[in-house]
Each structure stands twice: as structure tokens, then as C-alpha cells.
Design a protein around this nucleic acid. Structure first.
Lengths: 234, 234
DNA sequence: CTATTAATCAAACAATCTTTAGAATACTCC
DNA sequence: GGAGTATTCTAAAGATTGTTTGATTAATAG
């Protein structure tokens, strides 16, 4: 094998990873799987695709070793092959956010009223959590909460929020978070809560970013911290 | 615009970035541009492609805002749009290295004798540079050295190494580096030097990784440090 | 064994991507 | 203006990708 053949094949291998991410549907699937492992049907429903098409895309991801599948009886559960896959997706997403004006434009258009919502970042939330001045609210679907959440966070999926307002404090600020910077659940929650007289604000990032930054994480209500928080793993 | 349309378009934008990287030739171009800005012809020659094809691929990268072009007289010089593009490429490459067995196999096959070469990492090189126990050798093409190199490194492109052996010290270890973990120039240099009685070893990473890690960098022989080194920007 | 459910496969088609060859453009030098 | 050079554009062929439809496989329950 000569040098040119070696290079071609090596870059070819790395290109298969990029190819796996080079499709909007597959990026959405990766984004969903970063929240929690899921079955094919669930993924198809969440992403608004047919099951057959979802299955085909999942297999592209699997061939690139970005996701793994596990059969349990009649269902097949997919999960990210390693947390590094989320890191890659986030690196891609953040670069796109900085470089592509169109992303800004889309956010401006669709999340026009987001500017009116108060927001805080991870560092500030972590500080305020420690002095107990805030209540934390996870508004993602329950299955995602169960796979891991910010310690002490209460799980109320956004669609059920209206029914559980009585459980929330009026005397403390409420910080709502969801899947990530482009997830709209937290926006909706903050808007609803504000309208009902709560003091609510949103976390600018989602749970996967919180976890990737090394902040403590809780699972199934039992403490499962990763030690002292360490900022900025990027 | 409804939520589904918003998501589709947002993921679609991010997919354009992944698509730009989803081709072996374009990855090689990004890798080359991470070393130094270059003209189309130079890139085509380095990557073993026709000029027309190189131009076409560069424009895919440009539309995705990963590279920028600047016309200077009759030539057009391309460069990475931001250093973050290298970060994305490295994240992709490192994930591929960890996940794809085929990468390992290719390296084993083509760089079979690499195991016999002594190697050190960035941290250790930085330490040894400070106590003056090593000479550092940049074996990349001169244009790449001129765009930035490890402070105090001597530039001898690997093809000219044999002619300049007299300039190298026999009483100190020589650390050779080149473009990155899969670049073969440093391997060749270390092999040649060892055969001629020098004590030579290779740096496991290349210059772009050194720079991205926050270690000091020098340009055109004049000091241009970035302050104290800070490890691990990943 | 049969029926049921979840997931995958196979075939087909449209759409997109890659490459080449040759033409066209943009600039410089004379 | 004309010649020469670097780059880009155009057109066309060939390969790859994405999606749907309907069939098929794998496991479970009765």
C-alpha cells in the first residue's frame, strides 16, 4: 500500500463518520438518543418519520459506530455508542451556530419571543442551586428524566405542567430546562409559569450539555454524582 | 412556521456542515488548511487531485462557511474560516479513531514499524523543552512552518533532512513533529536520524494539536506566545 | 401452530453528489 | 489591447443516497 492509498482510505474512514451525520433526520435521531435510549417506534414518532425510514437511518448510524442496538424481546433499543458522540454533535452544532447566519435567522423567526424570557447559564444555576434560592424543573418527557437529570430537579413534562402548578413554589425562582439550546419545551414552560404569577426563567442549555460539562447528575431520584463540578469540557 | 418545519430546517442547516465534511477529499483539504492557508493549485498538488475538482470541493466547504477564500491578484488563497473548524475535524477524527476498528487496522498495516519508534506527548515535550534537554525539529514543508511552529523548533522539511544532518546535535535528544497523528513525515525523520546515530523520537501529535491545546506558538522566528500553556481544550 | 407486534429487508425511483473535459472568467504583464 | 495564468463554470456520465411500498423476519402470547 502506498502513501496515497493509505491517506485515501484513512480519510475515507473518517468521512463515513461525517456521512453518518450528514442528514437532518439522522442528526435529530442523535439528538434524541443523547437524551435517552429509545425504541425504533418511539424515535420514528418523535422525529415524525416512518418506522421503515427511521430503521434505515439508524442502521447508517450503526454502521458508522455512532449508535448501538440491543434486542430485548420483540423490541430493539438504540443508544449512543459513547457519550463522545454527543460531544461531536455538539461541536458540529455549535460551529454551525457560529458560522451560519441562517441558524440565527431561524431562531429569531421561530423563537421570536425568547428574548423576553429571562435565562441563566449552567454556572449560575449551579451556584444558585447551592444556596437553595431556586427550584429546578425538568420539562422533558419522563423517560428522559429517568435516564438522568439535574440533582433535585422535579420532573413535570411540559404538557402536564398546567395540571401540576399547585406543586410549584411561589416564593422561589423556578429554573426550567429541557433538551438543549434549541428545545422549545423550557420556553413554553417559562411562558406558562410567568403568566400564572410564578417567577420563572430558563436554562440556556439542556441536560446533555449540563452532564457533558461535568456538573453533578442524578438518576432515578438516587444521588449519582460525578464528584466536584468541573466547567468547560470543550 | 410550525415546530416540525423549524426543526427540519434547523437540523438541515447543521447537516450542511456535516455534509461538507462527508467526503474524503474535503477532509484532506481541511487537514491541509489546518497547517497553512494555500492556493488552489497547491492544494490540488498536495491532495493528488485535479485543479477543477479541488476547486469544486473548496466551494462546498466555502458554502458551509468552513473555509474562506481571498483573491490576491491572479491567485485565490483558501484558509479555515475559524480555528474551530480544526476543532471539529479533530473531534470527528478522534471519535473515528476510537470507534472504527478499520482505522487501527490501516495504521497497523501502513505504519507497521511505528511501534519501534520512541514517542512522547505534548505535555512531556513541553516539560523537556523548558529544561533544555531536547532539540525540536519541524519536518513539515517550509510554508507550514512559517505559519506557526513550536517555539525554538528548527525547520527542516523531511526531504531535505539528509542534507542538513550536520546542523543537528548529537548530544541531545531530537524530537521531530509534523502535521498530526497520522502524518508520516516525523516517522521518516526519526527513522533516518536513528540510523545515522542521532537520538531521535517523535511527537505523537502535530502542530495544530499543539496549538489547539494552548501551548505557546512561535511565528516567523519571532516570539508570539499565547501566555502560559493550558492543557486539554477538548 | 397461528396471530400479533416490532423491526428489517428488497426493490424501485427520484434526487443529489462526484468527477472529468472543455469553455469561460478574472486578473497581470507587456 | 493581447497573451498568459489561475481559477471557476458548464455539461454530462456515473455513483450514491433517501424514501416509499410491500414483503419478510424475529419474538411473544394464546
Amino acid at each position: 500500500m502506498d502513501k496515497r492509498a493509505f491517506k485515501d482510505r484513512l480519510y475515507g474512514e473518517f468521512a463515513t463518520v461525517a456521512k453518518a451525520l450528514a442528514n437532518p433526520h439522522r442528526l435529530e435521531l442523535v439528538d434524541l438518543l443523547a437524551q435517552a435510549p429509545r425504541r425504533v417506534e418511539e424515535l420514528a414518532a418523535e422525529a415524525g418519520m416512518t418506522v421503515a425510514n427511521t430503521s434505515a437511518h439508524l442502521q447508517v448510524l450503526r454502521r458508522a459506530r455512532l449508535v448501538e442496538a440491543e434486542r430485548e424481546g420483540v423490541t430493539v433499543t438504540y443508544r449512543l455508542a459513547t457519550p463522545d458522540v454527543f460531544t461531536l454533535w455538539r461541536t458540529l452544532r455549535d460551529l454551525g451556530t457560529r458560522q451560519l447566519a441562517e441558524v440565527d435567522r431561524l431562531v429569531e423567526t421561530f423563537l421570536a419571543d425568547r428574548d423576553g424570557l429571562e435565562a441563566i447559564d449552567q454556572e449560575e444555576l449551579h451556584r444558585r442551586m447551592q444556596d437553595g434560592s431556586v427550584a429546578v424543573l425538568d420539562v422533558r418527557p419522563a423517560v428522559e428524566y429517568e435516564q438522568g437529570h439535574i440533582p433535585g430537579a422535579r420532573s413535570i413534562p411540559v404538557d402536564e405542567l398546567e395540571r401540576h402548578l399547585a406543586d410549584l413554589p411561589k416564593d422561589r425562582e423556578i429554573v426550567a430546562y429541557c433538551r438543549g439550546p434549541y428545545c422549545v419545551y423550557a420556553d413554553r414552560a417559562v411562558r406558562l409559569l410567568s403568566a400564572r404569577g410564578f417567577r420563572a426563567l430558563r436554562l440556556v442549555d439542556g441536560f446533555p450539555e449540563w452532564q457533558a460539562a461535568g456538573y453533578p447528575v442524578e438518576r432515578h431520584g438516587s444521588a449519582a454524582n460525578r464528584g466536584t463540578p468541573q466547567r468547560s469540557t470543550t
